[in-house]
Write a protein that binds this DNA or RNA. Structure first.
Lengths: 161, 161
DNA sequence: GATTGAGTTCGCTACTTGCCGAACTAGATG
DNA sequence: CATCTAGTTCGGCAAGTAGCGAACTCAATC
């Protein structure tokens, strides 16, 4: 299988993963996937367009979304109007942070649910509390893990700057 | 604030959380949320309908979806045609397992991406490998955590049967 | 055997999403 | 100042979703 074909298949597969994980549009996910696979030197608007096979307008909109979210960034070169798109340096950390926030919210809601049950259904709380607490612990551990990973990544990126 | 009002607010909040987390429809998520809050004795179709304020048909469809997915189940009583819906005993474990599968898939894709980069962009792999490996480790730890939690819950539920 | 009650099925509508093409803008370059 | 190139904006269309109401089924009861 050629690099191109292999890349195309990976973009589709990875794209769907990204779509589920970050809730981006299919096109935005494919662009993100492409830049994960080969953005070291940066790809131009036209290069992205040819590989992804979508209209100028859609590419434009979705590149802007990804830029806004800090998932991608671009460089320019003197005497060259094109922009060279690549993964944003801290993109992985950005998305981990978004995940961190989501977990915090889940913990908050779970706390409210537990409080509600404790107050209005104390009779069944023996049961619920324990399942609730196991889940609460799980969320807290996950939060730790995410934070630890983000820190590890930051350290790594700072080092090789 | 009355129990009712508080419950309604919690259903909305928790419902949205469930919707994002399990990708269920808004209505299915609200029903699930309701049963999380007060399903110990089981709620009838009509009770659910009055609290959630939706049409019979929509309630029917969404209850069936939740049942299919093993998130909820029901009991019947002799000489009573109604069904009494409640959380399925293992619902939390069911959803943790779904999550487990999703993480495994993510690990697989990440492996493919790393292999692709190693093969076609070895020059930049020093960098990529390290970020890739940090993320790989993170996913593996998360997988462990999910498994551990599911086991803990299973043990708990077996015990108090 | 007619009626009631619990739930299902079907057809429809309103809304949202994702993308496209065509027209446009703005900053170089001849 | 005209032109070319990189990218944006706008209007619209096609497909998918969520939910509704009305008609239906099927079992139990009178």
């Amino acid at each position: 299988m050629s690099e191109q074909t292999e890349q195309e298949l990976l973009i589709e597969e990875l794209g769907i993963g990204i779509q589920d994980l970050l809730s981006l549009s299919p096109l935005a996910s494919r662009i993100y996937a492409l830049l994960i696979l080969c953005s070291y030197e940066g790809l131009t608007f036209e290069e992205i367009r040819t590989i992804i096979k979508a209209s100028k307008s859609s590419i434009s909109v979705n590149i802007n979304v990804l830029t806004q979210l800090n998932y991608i960034s671009y460089q320019t070169k003197p005497g060259d109007r094109k922009r060279y798109f690549k993964l944003a340096r801290y993109s992985s950390i950005i998305s981990l942070n978004a995940y961190h926030t989501a977990i915090e919210k889940e913990i908050k809601i779970l706390g409210e649910v537990n409080a509600f049950n404790k107050r209005y259904h104390p009779e069944k709380f023996n049961n619920e509390e324990s399942l609730g607490i196991i889940y609460q612990d799980y969320l807290k551990e996950k939060l730790q893990l995410v934070k630890k990973t983000a820190d590890k990544m930051t350290r790594f990126l700072e080092n090789e700057k």
